[in-house]
């Protein structure tokens, strides 16, 4: 069932049985789930419309599936995750992945560029207890995802919008613009152009309402690549006009969405 056909089912059932909401955690920092708790003013309304059936961060009471709407935070990074995500999918009518970890692998996807056993031996006293995968991967690589919300963390207004449109059986209006579009709607003088800051806004998916530029900080891409992402052109400009070195470019691209901004071949220095 897609978002549109939900129109038929959502409205009649909304009155008698409330749809069941579940929130799941995979490899993550909990920040995105907290965005839901952060909806202080709206949380009551959410609880009136949805039966919050599984949300360990908020309540230890969990009820059985199936669930109507599942919000999945975090990436798949252990053998256990591999099995668990399949179970979550089986129990969920709609599955929305929330945040950079769930939709792109997260900061922990830095491991995808290294040998995980090198890290384990440095970090843990008894490496033999650790059972982990070599890579950290997005939920969509393992199961069908009905909708993805980007950001590290997600934007709470976007989350509420998704919940609200779900309840009404209409498609979420989540823009696919660049961060620059919101930056300009906020009438901020571009930090790239006027201050030579290295900003990923032009290649980053909108959603945060240009949060960082509004505080005079260049975007570091936490919403991940936007549609038609031209990483090559932006990095070539940063190399030639702002004298960024190759390691600096790698660092810039690999902060929050390490596995989704694909590094181009940089020009020789």
């Amino acid at each position: 069932m897609d978002w549109q056909s939900r129109i038929v089912t959502a409205i009649p059932t909304a009155m008698d049985t409330k749809p069941k909401l579940a929130v799941w955690k995979f490899a993550s920092c909990d920040g995105c789930q907290l965005s839901l708790l952060d909806c202080e003013d709206e949380l009551l309304a959410v609880a009136q419309q949805l039966d919050i059936a599984h949300f360990s961060e908020a309540s230890s009471q969990v009820s059985e599936g199936p669930f109507d709407l599942s919000l999945v935070e975090g990436s798949v990074s252990t053998p256990d995750d591999l099995e668990r995500i399949q179970k979550v999918r089986q129990q969920s009518r709609f599955l929305v992945s929330i945040g950079a970890c769930a939709s792109a692998g997260g900061i922990q996807a830095l491991r995808n560029y290294a040998d995980i056993s090198d890290y384990i031996s440095v970090v843990y006293a008894s490496p033999s207890y650790i059972s982990t995968l070599k890579t950290s991967t997005p939920i969509s690589q393992h199961v069908k995802v009905d909708f993805e919300l980007r950001g590290c963390p997600i934007d709470k207004h976007q989350l509420l919008h998704v919940i609200q449109t779900y309840l009404q059986g209409r498609r979420p209006q989540i823009s696919s613009d660049s961060v620059c579009v919101d930056c300009k709607r906020n009438q901020i003088p571009c930090l790239m152009v006027s201050q030579q800051q290295a900003c990923l806004g032009p290649i980053t998916h909108a959603g945060c309402d240009a949060l960082c530029p509004r505080f005079n900080r260049a975007c570091f891409g936490c919403f991940g690549p936007k549609n038609n992402c031209n990483t090559r052109s932006l990095t070539a400009w940063l190399q030639s006009e702002q004298a960024l070195s190759k390691p600096e470019l790698t660092r810039l691209l690999h902060t929050f969405n390490s596995d989704s901004f694909v590094e181009p071949e940089y020009a020789e220095e």
Partner: peptide, 25 residues
């Protein structure tokens, strides 16, 4: 970059879109 900065600063560009939003209730 298809970033839209040029159109957003242009004083003669006029395009707009509309979005509908509501509260959870």
């Amino acid at each position: 970059l298809s970033c839209a900065n040029c159109t957003m600063v242009c004083p003669s560009c006029f395009c707009s879109n509309t979005t509908d939003s509501g509260d959870v209730s």
